[in-house]
Each structure stands twice: as C-alpha cells, then as structure tokens.
Design a protein around this nucleic acid. Sequence first.
DNA 1: GAGGCTAGTGACAGCCACTGACAATTGACA
DNA 2: TGTCAATTGTCAGTGGCTGTCACTAGCCTC
Lengths: 210, 210
Amino acid sequence: MNLRERKKRRTRDALLRAALELFVTRGYEETTVDDIAAAVDVSQRTFFRYFAGKEETAFFVPRLAETLVVEALRTRPPGEVPLEALRRAVLESWDAINEAVAELVPIDLHLRVYRVIESTPALLAAHLRRSAELEEQLACIIAEREGLDVNADPRPRIVVALFGGVIRVTERLWSAGDDLTLDGMRQLTTTYLDQVGPALAGNWRAEQSP
Amino acid sequence: MNLRERKKRRTRDALLRAALELFVTRGYEETTVDDIAAAVDVSQRTFFRYFAGKEETAFFVPRLAETLVVEALRTRPPGEVPLEALRRAVLESWDAINEAVAELVPIDLHLRVYRVIESTPALLAAHLRRSAELEEQLACIIAEREGLDVNADPRPRIVVALFGGVIRVTERLWSAGDDLTLDGMRQLTTTYLDQVGPALAGNWRAEQSP
DNA sequence: GAGGCTAGTGACAGCCACTGACAATTGACA
DNA sequence: TGTCAATTGTCAGTGGCTGTCACTAGCCTC
C-alpha cells in the first residue's frame, strides 16, 4: 500500500473516530462538520471528500455488519426453512461482525453510537431506510433459495419483513435499556425470535408468555 | 370561524397544495421552499410559520390517515384476535380516510405524492420513521386489548411489526406499479395479508402460492 | 536526482433549509 | 375610531453541502 493510500486511510479513520466520539459525547445535532474537521485538523471540504455527508459517518460501521449478514445468509445450507436461515445467519455472523468492527473503531464506541442513532430522529430515519434496503436484499436471497420470483410471490418479502420487524424491536429495546453489551443484544434477539411462533398463535390469553 | 382564521386556513391549504403540486411535477429535491412560497405569494418566513419544514408538507395528509387508523383500532370489538383487529381497522377505515383527505387536497394529487415519497430517499426515510412511531401506538393498543404490558410481553410489538411489514411491502409494490388507484391498493393489501399465514407455514415448496 | 504528472487539499464563494429578532401590517373588539 | 394582538415581511445569520481553482505533496520517468 502506497504512502499516499496509507495517509488517506489514516485521515478517513481519524475523521470517522472523531465524528463518532463527538456524537456520543456532545450529541449528533450538536456536532457540526466543522467541529469534526477541526478535531482532525483538516478543512471542512476535505471531510466531504471522504464522506458524502455527516450522516454517513454514523453508518459507516453498521454498513460493514450488514454486508457480513448478507454474506452469511448466502452460505446457509438450503435445507433450512427461511425463518431459520435468517435467524442463524444473523446469530452466527455476530462474532465475525465484531472482529471486523474492532479493526475500525473501539467496540465500546460503536455500541454507544447505536444509542445515538436510535435517539436522534434524523439518524433513526436514515437507519430505517437502510434497513429497508437490506431487507430487500435478504428477500431476494430467500426467494432464490426457494426457487421463487420475488416479484411474483409475496412470501419472501413477508417473512423478511417479519424478521426485520423483530430485529428492529430488539434494537430499540436494547439501545433504550442499560445492558449496553454485545451479549445483552444477542440474548434479547434470541428471546424475541423465540416469541415469533407464540405471538402468531391464536389466543394469547390462553397461554401467558414467560 | 373568524375572518382571520379563515385566512390562515386558506394560506395553509394553498401552501400545502402548491407544495404537493410542485413535488409531483418537478420532484421533491428540485423544489425549494422559496418556490413554494412564491407560488402562493407569501414570504419564505411565512411558509415556516405554517410548516416545521419542507418535509412536513409531504406528510400532512398521511398524518390524517394515521390518526383515523388508530381511532379505528381502538373501537374494534375485543373478541377479535390481534392480527384480525389490525386488518379490519385498516381496511374498514379506508373510506373514512379518503373522505377526510378529499377535503384537503384532490385524491389524485395525494396518490401521486405517495409515489414521490417512495422514490425520494429523504422522504422515504422520514416515512419509515413515522411508520415506526405509528406501530408503537398500535402495539400499545393491542397490548391493552389483551390485558398485557407492552414492555414486559414481546408479542404485541411482534404482531404489529409483522403487520406493519406487510403494509410497507404493499405500499412499495403499489407505488412502483402502474395501478395508482385506491382500489388497487386496497386489493393488494388484502391479498398480501391473506398470504401471511402461508408465508409462515413451514415448507413453501410443498404448496405453491397462487 | 530533477522534472513533470496527478491525487489530495485548502480557501473561497455560493445554494438551500431553517431560525431569531424586529418592524410593519392587518383583523378584532371595545 | 382607536387600541391591542395576531400575522406577516425583512434582514441577518447558522449549518450542511457543492463547485471551482490554485497549490502542495507523493509518485513515476528519464
């Protein structure tokens, strides 16, 4: 790798870390792009050469995680039922995700950024739109696994929507709670996915949830 | 109603209609607030006294629909299973929604705005965030109907997430297709909701979808 | 190793969404 | 009709973001 490229990578990482650090301490809206640029001692214009916008810094790391989940779903054995494949793809790519993330920013910082995303309207909106795009990808993969046409058969998109909905609910609960750890998130996710069956069964009053 | 209040209502409606008209003809990003204000011959500052931002004009009408759906769910008979109550609340408030909308803007305009929302990243993001808030409300109502605590029992949020997911999928398909009518949307919605059961049943390959 | 080439940068000007402050106007009401 | 309060316009300013242009620093060739 060139000196030029190494330098570029270094400023990008510095901008990224500075931005996230400022977001978690001062808040997203309270952080200006000038603040971020100043923290790394580059011009505002340079910031915009590395990131398309202030928003992008917040989602740079999550984007990594998404590609890994997609990857994981692609390599699931074809015998698994769709919901099962989705569940395992997410749970089993967890560790790989954290490894990849840790190379960019401290895990702790990354987790606290999630809370900022969830509590900042503008970021939450962007997050949901990105999630919708991810779900579309997943639906296509599921359809392919089952030998279906995504646009002709509603079912792939419906399962993915259900799955995505559950994930979103856990994300929200996790980021609002005080157990801001990876295992906390993982545990919450499995618990909620286990509840999908019971939630769709007819009468809730007959059998109470634990 | 005062002359003053009548005047206010008139400028607000004029701003709203002008904005939507510009959005569907020129595009959302290509329309500046100055354009909208100029079309109604008021100052830009006045626009911001009626709407918190450019975005709000696009969601002013949809907000109406949402409140009516919430209302409808509240008055569903307690005998209905959650998913059934949600389904009926949406389908049976349809007509009331259109009546209310028609008083503000031409239905046709409103429908074309939906397509703009769906195809404009910034608006889509905002739409998804708003939908998430609506889902939270619905989950609370469902929980209350079933005598549960939303925060203790995962199931209300899960069903609503599933339901909301299906609605979103139909919205997307409808706005992308060429049958931009109310009946088209209604029909698509019922079809997809009917597919929820089959989609969650184990093996898709055994029984093909129609 | 000098010189040209080019990617990366900074400085500047400008657009657009949005806000605060203050003055001017217009409807309400005695 | 005159006073009061609500509505509006004007102006100035902030923050995100983009285009332009000159300049510098690393790269590559001779």
